[in-house]
Design a protein around this nucleic acid. Structure first.
Length: 658
RNA sequence: GCCGCGUUAGCUCAGCUGGUAGAGCAGCGCUCUUGUAAAGCGAAGGUCGUGGGUUCAAAUCCCUCACGCGGCACCA
């Protein structure tokens, strides 16, 4: 085709408002923006062409629907800003330290990271240097340009630059996919894009480098450890400030900090990953445990208790020894003292023990479903770097239960479980949760027919309850599909707590059976299920969800009665005694301190209710009620106030049946 | 487990390039009898995580280990 012929070819561009305009073929998003208005041309950051987000510099060669984006298109702008900030950071790093090797730098929630290979560790001072250099690059307003190269040229290019990670990345790009090379000014990176039009479109005052961390190359612990720098970026300085403020607020509800401040628990180096519960914390834990015990009992579960220390023979039989031996705490008796040599393990899970209980005595189909529950204390030798306050510990207690049932009973058991879990989460203050259904993996036991039935049972159960869910194909265990339940906390974070897992394997390995209607022996299914997961972790989630300001029924300290003058001490004691008689966790603060002091101290300790009593209250048989976080007080007759507090302190399940 | 950083009084933290430790709050004692987020005064409190090394001298520099923190990997 001649140049002249090319020039007269036209493409029809449909704009978001429906207008159709003709442009010469090969027109770019930038060109279209320029034709529409000067201001749009300046503000444009990218374009969507036929539903695909692209650079403004991409030529458009066929009739297309085109939308030009500016920084006002929040989702698109944030993605591009963070993406380009990652490139600008990598460029800044290489300009400061030319020997640093670059790898990858994707956009993540709230920001981006970029992994570097550098002999020297990055310091926090380095981050400030990099930020400064990034602002310089942004000020250059270097245009972003792109070319598609063939594979060999790209490989040679990166070999010449001594960028081995990029060579590897080029090799990973599937055949037939274009290899896009990008430039920010003179600096070059391998990237599929899209990008902003120039570096100046990253707001210089709305990004921040957050932290440095180690990360394995391609997430593989057998490969080199790189240095990862995390950054965050927004469209405006105020958005960045708001984000940093949210991080500070989240840090304030850190359960480790609140745990110390509210005297809930502590941990120490003689027992890493193990919790020392203090009186206040144990009160909270017990409120939760007592509640769960009642809920399980009412749902038809039988509570049992099984041993902590069990011979390795059982773990060999269950298959855990082979797979998880190095994560088990071993318990041995001194050879001289022991009559026989045995190797025991602290139980890492309850299920093999539960099968032992099931296996005692012959079971009939009439016994099924049999729901065995245990608040089972388990120990796992977790990797040292994985521990995190109460969220990941080595000694924990599950709200564990195993349901032994027939295949036909799976669906109704699953539906009943979801209903129970949903009610429990609601009582504990979590309105929203999501379900993930993990289905058959490549490598599995059992026939496809069985998998069809069991997966169908789980899906039907979910539909029955009407809960939102998504399917995660291939993510199930080799012995059965499972459901994971993720709840959302007060600040939008998700926590996977509940689980429901179908197991056809363990009953087989440990020889569980029942006599059916037909008089023959059959293998029961075993359903592993938990609602809270572990009490330790769930307590941590509760602390963070409520930021330590628990609803009255969960609060470790519910009511403090604080006399204003010592003449009110006897009256305060009477009120405390009356509340305690009704099960309310009340205490009197008879210290010789001003009421201001007492109010401040108990407020900081997050006691939900302070009852102040002075001469007037004694005289009139009233109390002055002050709620945590409120300035105002309310004076009420003591009997009425106590009746309301007693009602409010009643756990929700008991309140429903009262 | 891996990378980086950290560990000083009960808590929060100072302590620069080496000269054997400071503050606020809490706790303790005394005074104050108090009206809704800190009354006043006083005395006390630390083998500077562990073990080793360098040095005339180490909280400070080097090494080891432990634990913690931020990630990565792992999470039956």
């Amino acid at each position: 085709m001649s140049d002249a012929a090319e020039a007269i070819r036209e493409v029809r561009i449909t704009l978001p408002d429906g207008a159709v305009r003709a442009y010469p073929a090969g027109v770019t998003g930038a060109g279209i923006a320029e034709s529409l208005s000067k201001s749009l041309s300046k503000a444009a950051i990218a374009a969507t062409v036929n539903g695909r987000l692209t650079d403004l510099s991409q030529p458009i060669t066929e009739n297309s629907a085109v939308a030009i984006h500016t920084i006002r298109d929040e989702e698109i702008a944030l993605g591009l800003i963070r993406h380009d900030a990652a490139h600008i950071m990598a460029r800044a790093v290489q300009e400061l330290w030319p020997d640093v090797k670059v790898t990858i730098g994707p956009v993540i929630e709230n920001g981006w990271y970029y992994d570097f290979d550098r002999a020297e560790p990055f310091t926090t001072e380095d981050l400030a240097l990099i930020e400064k250099k990034m602002r310089e690059i942004i000020a250059l307003r270097d245009p972003v340009t792109t070319e598609v190269w063939d594979r060999d040229r790209a490989v040679r290019h990166y070999e010449a630059l001594n960028e081995p990670y990029k060579v590897e990345l080029v090799g990973m790009i599937p055949e037939g996919q274009p290899i896009r090379m990008y430039w920010h000014g003179h600096w070059q990176d391998l990237c599929r894009g899209p990008h902003l039009a120039h570096t100046g479109q990253v707001p210089a005052d709305a990004f921040k480098l957050m932290s440095v961390a180690g990360a394995y190359w391609r997430g593989d612990s057998d490969r080199p450890m790189l240095q990862r720098i995390y950054g965050t970026a927004f469209r405006t300085k105020d958005d960045l400030k708001a984000h940093l403020f949210r991080l500070e607020e989240a840090a304030k509800r850190d359960h480790r900090k609140l745990g110390r401040e509210m005297k809930l628990f502590h941990m120490q180096e003689e027992a890493p990953g193990m919790v020392f519960w203090h009186p206040e914390g144990w009160t909270l834990y017990r409120a939760l445990e007592d509640y769960m015990r009642r809920r399980l009992r009412h749902a038809g579960y039988k509570e049992i208790r099984t041993p902590q220390v069990v011979d390795r023979k059982l773990w060999e039989a269950s298959g855990h020894w082979e797979a998880y031996q190095e994560h088990m705490f071993l318990v041995e008796v001194e050879e001289e003292a022991a009559k026989e040599k045995r190797v025991n393990a602290l139980k890492p899970m309850n299920c093999p023990c539960h099968v032992q209980v099931y296996n005692q005595g012959l079971k009939s189909y009439r016994d099924l479903p049999l729901r065995l529950a245990e608040f089972g204390a388990c120990h796992r030798y977790e990797p040292s770097g994985s521990m995190h306050g109460l969220m990941r510990v080595r000694g924990f207690t599950q709200d564990d239960a195993h349901i032994f049932c027939t295949e036909d009973q799976i669906e109704s058991e699953c539906a009943a479980f979801i209903a129970l879990l949903s009610s429990v989460y609601k009582d504990l203050g979590f309105e929203k949760f999501d379900i993930k259904l993990s289905t058959r993996p490549e490598v599995r036991i059992g026939s496809d027919e069985t998998w069809d039935k069991v997966e169908g049972a789980l899906e039907n159960a979910i539909l029955q309850v009407g809960a939102p869910y998504q399917v995660d194909p291939g993510e199930g265990a080799f012995y059965g599909p499972k459901l994971d339940f993720k709840l959302t906390d007060a600040i939008g974070r998700e926590w996977q707590c509940g689980t429901f897992q179908v197991d056809a394997q363990l009953p087989e390995r440990l020889g569980a059976e029942y006599v059916g209607e037909d008089g023959d022996k059959h293998r029961p299914y075993m359903l592993h299920r938990a609602i809270l997961g572990s009490f330790e972790r769930f307590t941590g989630v509760l602390i963070e969800h409520y930021a330590g300001r628990f609803p009255l029924w969960l609060a470790p300290r519910q009511v403090v009665v604080a006399p204003i003058v010592s003449q009110a001490n006897d009256y305060a004691d009477q009120v405390v005694m009356a509340l305690r008689a009704k099960g309310v966790r009340a205490e009197a603060d008879l210290r010789n301190e001003k009421i201001n002091y007492k109010v401040r101290e108990h407020s900081l300790a997050k006691v939900p209710v302070i009852l102040a009593v002075g001469a007037r209250e004694v005289e009139e048989r009233t109390v002055s009620i002050r709620r945590l976080g409120e300035q105002r007080t309310e004076e009420r007759p003591v009997d009425l106030a106590m009746a309301d507090l007693i009602a409010e302190a009643t756990p929700p399940d008991l309140a429903r049946t009262a």
